[in-house]
Design a protein around this nucleic acid. Structure first.
Length: 271
DNA sequence: CACAGCTCCTGGCAGC
DNA sequence: TGCTGCCAGGAGCTGT
């Protein structure tokens, strides 16, 4: 599941190779991968475009083509792969939903087994990402900003997963951050005191930063733009570790369900 | 407003 | 071995 660190890793990998390249042709193999404007509109809109920047907003990859912007959301199992040549095995890969051929002979592939990922071609990225909450790694994301995100009566885990509240967290890193902050995912957000907020703020930033430094977490599907796995799965404290011992207190890690999501906690040290 | 449930999808896996 | 059916889950949506 690509979350902020995985998307950041892909963006960093793509940026060097992609900026300055011109898209010579594009093909969409599964029409519903295009959210907007339309398959033909997207193909026509990117063809001939030169990449002027590659960036990230929350879990969206933003490829700037002058005035136009190609946004990619990988959702559950999507990959954005840069292939040096249109190798035959990739051309025949049944899970490639779209391909963008570049002027140096390389190909940018959007591969998505589960068909949840989406492509958007817009003039103004805010049309797609405008309603998202703050970036948790931005300088402006202070404990006071987090405090403002946590004023409602909702449970903190579903609140942190809500991209309109804070943008970029997913199931893995919310569980990790809550564990690190010693906060129970079912706590009501408006019960957090200043120290809780301070710990949660620090935990979110350190969990994301460390995951980026490890090149992301590969549990099953995630690959970077070169097709390589990340390394952060070995550093996870609780996610996917039900039955193991809490690395902090030795208590048993449990799997519970919060907001219909599998959730991993140490009930002994998260309150 | 809070939250449960449904939808989209399909590979992987448990159970028989 | 081979089949069935359930599960995972990001995000948008509807229903309570």
């Amino acid at each position: 599941m690509p979350e902020l660190p995985e998307v950041e890793s892909i963006v960093r990998g793509l940026r060097t190779s992609l900026v300055g390249r011109t898209i010579t042709s594009a093909e969409v193999r599964w029409a519903r991968a295009v959210d907007r404007p339309s398959v033909q509109g997207l193909v026509d809109g990117v063809t001939g475009g030169t990449v002027t920047g590659v960036s990230r907003r929350a879990k969206f990859i933003v490829i700037a083509l002058g005035d136009a912007h190609l946004l990619v959301h990988l959702r559950m199992a999507g990959r954005l792969l840069l292939c040096r040549s249109a190798a035959i095995e990739l051309v025949q890969d049944p899970y490639v939903r779209a391909a963008f051929h570049l002027d140096d002979g390389s190909v940018l592939l959007f591969r998505d087994v589960r068909k949840f990922g989406r492509l958007y071609l817009v003039q103004d990225p805010s049309e797609v990402v405008g309603a998202l909450g703050p970036e948790p790694l931005a300088d402006g994301f202070t404990p006071a900003v987090l405090r403002n995100c946590m004023t409602r009566r909702r449970q903190i885990k579903p609140l942190l997963l809500d991209q309109h509240v804070v943008a970029g967290l997913g199931n893995i890193y919310v569980d990790e951050a809550l564990w690190k902050a010693r906060l129970h995912p079912l706590r009501r957000a408006d019960t957090l005191n200043d120290d809780d907020i301070r710990r949660l703020h620090a935990a979110v930033r350190s969990v994301l930063t460390r995951a980026i430094n490890d090149g992301g977490t590969t549990l099953r599907d995630y690959r970077d733009c070169e097709g390589e796995v990340g390394q952060h799965q070995y550093a996870l404290a609780v996610y996917g570790r039900a039955g193991e011992a809490c690395p902090r207190c030795g208590g048993a890690i449990e799997r519970i369900v919060v907001g219909q999501r599998g959730t991993h906690i140490c009930a002994r040290c998260q309150h």
